[in-house]
Simulated scan of single mutants.
Amino acid sequence: MNATIILPDPETMYQAIVDRDAEMEGLFLFAVKTTGIFCRPGCKAKPPKRENVEFFATADDALAAGYRACKRCRPQELSGSVPPWLTQLVDALEAEPTRRWSNADLIDMGLSPIRVRHWFQEHYQMTFHAYLRTRRIGLAVDMLNAGQDVTSVALDSGYQSLSGFRDSLRKWTGQSPTSIQQGEPILVERLLTPLGPMLAAASDAGLCLLEFADRKMLPKQFERINKRFQQPILPGTHPVLSEAAQQIDQYFRGERSEFTLPLRLDGTSFQETVWQKLLEIPYGQTRSYGELAKQLGKPNASRAVGRTNGDNRLAIVVPCHRVVRSDGHLCGYAGGLWRKKWLLEHERKARQTQLPL
């Protein structure tokens, strides 16, 4: 089941087109009558005249009206998807994860090193070559945790010397090979959603972060995780991340109302109590900050509840978006109020159809 999206007012949507406002991703699509093409709000193409614009909630609606998808912004795909021009390289990275790629290699594949660097900076907040280094370190950590000896791991990870491997490992993880073997890393993976990419982080102990990738506080959240758990944070895959991706996809499809993921809600005693209360808010319903404070037996702690709500590291799964002001108005969502509105409307519509889960 697809969620029914209530469109913003036309003038707000048109201004988003003029501003190429990618933060409106997921709220609407627009079509240009003179070209027969429909696009995302953040499309880089020249903004059309207002009288030539038609707005749609979904790609299916635009297609049904006879429009075709823009080849530049690819509105039928989730934001953050690998573009066709980069697919060959990404496939090659998966096939040879320890290969040391040079700019000459990219040029041989018909790719512009500058264009590749810009894409990785936009979607991973690091250059292409930095991404390669973190991938190699992630693979090395996996092998060390599996019990392989340091020398073999260094060579199998593409390092030419043991000293270079040790230096690189300490730079990226802050730990020595011996320390790594005695612990486990927190692994990070990107999840694509209708509201934009999210970053998920997990270890064997459970999911410890799920945030929209454009959240300004994201770097601070990673710092807090690193300080609290004292584990290296690296890109990689993990069964908990795979299950999180599946359940988040089901949520956005309207097929899931509860999550069954192992969670790391580590915080102060007060924070953990508030986050547990958030988990008790029924799907499709809301609570006010004051109501939560009263449930905690601290009726004067509304502000503290609000701060703790904002410190939640597990968006959607720990549903801080279900907390509103006492008058019912939306406020205080780190992922953006437009996302909060979308999520609440999505849940309300899904609940009306008697979601089975």
Rank of each mutant, 00 (worst) to 15 (best):
residue 263 L to M: 06
residue 314 L to T: 07
residue 291 E to Q: 15
residue 300 N to Q: 14
residue 297 G to H: 05
residue 251 Y to S: 06
residue 303 R to Q: 15
residue 281 I to T: 06
residue 320 C to V: 08
residue 327 D to F: 11
residue 284 G to K: 04
residue 318 V to M: 02
residue 320 C to E: 05
residue 252 F to W: 04
residue 269 S to W: 12
residue 305 V to P: 12
residue 278 L to C: 07
residue 328 G to H: 10
residue 269 S to K: 15
residue 312 N to H: 02
residue 284 G to D: 06
residue 262 P to Y: 01
residue 286 T to R: 14
residue 303 R to F: 13
residue 296 L to T: 12
residue 262 P to D: 10
residue 316 I to W: 02
residue 280 E to D: 15
residue 274 V to G: 00
residue 288 S to M: 06
residue 327 D to K: 09
residue 285 Q to L: 07
residue 285 Q to A: 10
residue 257 S to R: 11
residue 270 F to R: 01
residue 254 G to L: 02
residue 270 F to N: 00
residue 271 Q to I: 04
residue 277 K to H: 15
residue 318 V to K: 00
residue 306 G to R: 04
residue 249 D to R: 07
residue 321 H to T: 12
residue 251 Y to L: 06
residue 291 E to C: 09
residue 257 S to D: 08
residue 261 L to C: 08
residue 292 L to Q: 04
residue 276 Q to V: 15
residue 260 T to C: 06
residue 253 R to D: 10
residue 278 L to K: 10
residue 272 E to A: 14
residue 270 F to D: 00
residue 307 R to P: 03
residue 291 E to M: 14
residue 317 V to C: 03
residue 288 S to F: 01
residue 289 Y to P: 00
residue 304 A to R: 09
residue 290 G to F: 00
residue 324 V to F: 03
residue 325 R to G: 06
residue 279 L to S: 07
residue 255 E to C: 07
residue 323 V to S: 02
residue 294 K to Y: 09
residue 292 L to F: 04
residue 274 V to T: 06
residue 296 L to I: 09
residue 262 P to A: 07
residue 306 G to P: 00
residue 311 D to A: 11
residue 327 D to Q: 13
residue 293 A to P: 01
residue 271 Q to H: 08
residue 252 F to P: 03
residue 276 Q to C: 13
residue 277 K to C: 11
residue 294 K to D: 08
residue 248 I to Y: 00
residue 262 P to K: 01
residue 270 F to C: 00
residue 296 L to V: 13
residue 308 T to N: 05
residue 295 Q to A: 04
residue 255 E to P: 02
residue 302 S to R: 12
residue 310 G to P: 02
residue 293 A to W: 02
residue 304 A to S: 12
residue 293 A to I: 10
residue 309 N to C: 13
residue 312 N to V: 14
residue 323 V to C: 04
residue 276 Q to M: 13
residue 315 A to T: 13
residue 279 L to Q: 08
residue 320 C to D: 07
residue 311 D to K: 08
residue 314 L to C: 04
residue 292 L to C: 06
residue 270 F to W: 04
